[in-house]
Amino acid sequence: MNLPDLSKIPKIDKLGVIERTNRFCKRSIKNSAKEMGLHLSLSMIDLTTLDGKDTPEKVRQLCYKARHLHDSMEGLPNVAAVCVYPTFVSVATKELEGSGINVASVSTAFPSGQSTLEVKISDTKFAIDQGADEVDMVISRGKFLSGEYNFVFDEIATVKEVCGKAHLKVILETGELDTLDNVRKASKISMHAGADFIKTSTGKISPAATMPVTYVMLLAIKDYYKKTGIKIGMKPAGGISTSKQSLQYLVMLKETLGDDWMNKDLFRFGASRLANDILMQLQKKKSGFYQSLDYFSKD
């Protein structure tokens, strides 16, 4: 594996991208289509807790939530995965055994990525040993911005090797990459280095996921697929908290990459509040009444 030729990356027309993404927000999705979209969104959620104050109890609670989204409503899908720090992977694996819900772990000195390669490797190894099915790594944004693309490429490739069978999601932290051109470049580097998923953000930096950024990454995935025939997944994370937004992302996904990507194997939402909002919407559809968070579990 070698660093791809970055000189051939097309320039991004920022205004064009914004115009295009605004269009995605204007589709009218109602009734059965909406219900289907909401179910699909639910099944794509990586339920996430990544706070310094996390405890095993908090993680257990989140895992319980993942298995029991809202028991009084029938026919709900499970979320795709639970995303935690490496130290809580064992807790989550135990809680989620047999549920079909994956355990994702962040690694490589999340969220800043400011550490040595050795530490990052052992961080990842630890997560894998503990039983993580998926690994969310961060790239070294500082190195990327100073033009050391080889360094970034090698780092991802090394972590991918450590991951083995586990799925690797590469977090670009687009909020720190400044331009859409950089996002496009970082996407390409990540995919060539072996990422199974590319992910927008850690959720610790604002702005997190936005539609323009996600759109640029989807286009990068499309080009990569055309060239190699390999389907790379996409995970916007952070800032997507309403069901309306999630539907808009799904519209963008469908109209950019098509039906093949419309499942949890190739698209995820990194979110913690989104699930409850979707549940409230579904309950509203069922009962006809606008809902209150008071009647849904907090985490």
Partner: peptide, 8 residues
């Protein structure tokens, strides 16, 4: 109807 039924 909505003023009266909203759960929040």
């Amino acid at each position: 109807p909505h003023f009266a039924s909203h759960m929040d």
